[in-house]
């Protein structure tokens, strides 16, 4: 089994979604989504609120269920089986809008606990690995503090370190800067840019259009549960094909300089 998985991983894309649909009661949140992401790709998902962007990435690591369609992560099909869910969550790291650090644990423990419990590292090895990643997000000096003692930007950087320390094949970031005060947005965006140096595959839901333009290798625009536009950033921001994309960009870029 594991041999098959490894061989499949080389050939299979990090994420392949086919015909994915999801309903909340009668409301259709996702409508037959098809999306394949290549190794090293940095995808930014944008769109109005309620368009299904967050729902889409939350279905990938089984935080949300879905009714029809198929999700494959590195060639592994997501099913209800705990083994499948576990295998996929090991390959996918996630960062949330509201950080969701564990408030009863120190910064170091936040990063080291999952390494011990999920990766089976010893305490010393887990602490060392956690420390390495805290250095990568440039807050090793905060390791002994509790999350409540940090600023929002620092907390989000710890959350990024905690996810990346698990050494996933792909990162999902769900509006990572939306809950931050304006002066803290940049430190988090800079941290994300630093991660690209390792060629990490990333899917980011964000409203930071200026950042998306610099950071993304590909941008998709979602509306009412559908992918409306899918283009490289240069094309997406200067010459969108769809009217709905143009209308959305006009709105979000107002006051943000000429598009």
């Amino acid at each position: 089994m594991s041999v098959e998985v490894v061989s499949a991983e080389a050939a299979e894309p990090p994420l392949a979604i086919r015909g994915l649909s999801k309903w909340y009661g009668k409301f259709q949140a996702l409508d037959a989504i098809d999306l394949t992401i290549a190794e090293g790709e940095r995808l930014v998902i944008c769109g109005p609120s309620g368009s299904g962007k967050s729902t889409l990435i939350r279905t990938v690591n089984a935080l949300e269920g879905f009714q029809s369609g198929e999700i494959l992560v590195g060639g592994i099909t997501l099913t209800r089986e705990p083994a499948s869910v576990e295998a996929i969550r090991r390959r996918v790291g996630m960062v949330f809008q509201s950080f969701n650090l564990f408030p009863h644990l120190t910064v170091l423990e936040n990063c080291a606990l999952p390494l011990r419990l999920v990766r089976g590292l010893s305490r010393a090895a887990a602490d060392a690995q956690a420390m390495r990643y805290l250095e990568q997000v440039r807050i090793p000096e905060q390791a002994a503090k509790y999350p409540a003692q940090l600023s929002g930007g620092q907390q989000q950087r710890v959350a990024i370190a905690r996810a990346v320390a698990m050494e996933p094949q792909m990162m999902l970031l769900d509006e990572p800067t939306s809950a931050l005060d304006p002066e803290m947005v940049k430190e988090v965006l800079d941290t994300m840019v630093r991660l690209t140096a390792d060629g990490m595959t990333m899917v980011v839901v964000t409203h930071e259009m200026g950042f998306a333009r610099e950071f993304a290798t590909r941008v998709i625009f979602m509306d009412r549960g559908k992918i409306v536009e899918d283009a490289p950033p240069a094309e997406f921001f200067t010459n969108p094909r769809e009217d709905r994309t143009r209308a959305f960009l006009r709105q979000v870029l107002r006051g943000d300089g000429p598009a």
Binding site: N61, A62, L63, E86, R89, R90, V92, G93, M94, F96, S98, N100, L101, F102, P103, H104, L113, P114, L117, V118, A159, R162, A163, M166
Partner: peptide, 26 residues
């Protein structure tokens, strides 16, 4: 908060570990 469950699940913690290490202490 439900976000604590989500973060623990997303990190791959097993149900028992989520309960004993993340939820109950809080």
């Amino acid at each position: 908060p439900v976000g604590q469950w989500e973060a623990a699940r997303a990190l791959g913690l097993k149900p028992r570990a989520i309960m004993t290490r993340v939820i109950l202490p809080q």
